[in-house]
Amino acid sequence: MNKDWPLWEVFIRSKNGLDHKHAGSLHATDARMAIENARDVYTRRMEGVSIWVVESKYIHASNPEDSDSLYDPANDKAYRHPTFYDLPEEVKNM
């Protein structure tokens, strides 16, 4: 049996309406303990309203060497961004 507790990644929603954001990591024996530890470690100053934890070994990351093929193609799709469109002055707040 491995005595060292596994590593978990912690994601915190700082207030309702916002996304969960990566806050850091910690060690815990299971998900329940991980959530409690996250509460004690990462929300000591009322930083959160909701906590996600996931065991670090289950996180799959993209490979930095692939970053050209993964992200650069989005570079020339300026039409996906609202500022691409010049609208007449009269059309405010769109």
């Binding site: 060690h27 004690d40 000591r44």
Partner: peptide, 11 residues
């Protein structure tokens, strides 16, 4: 006994 629980009991 472990950092996480040191923090918990202090809380």
């Amino acid at each position: 006994p472990v950092l996480e629980q040191d923090i918990a009991i202090s809380n």
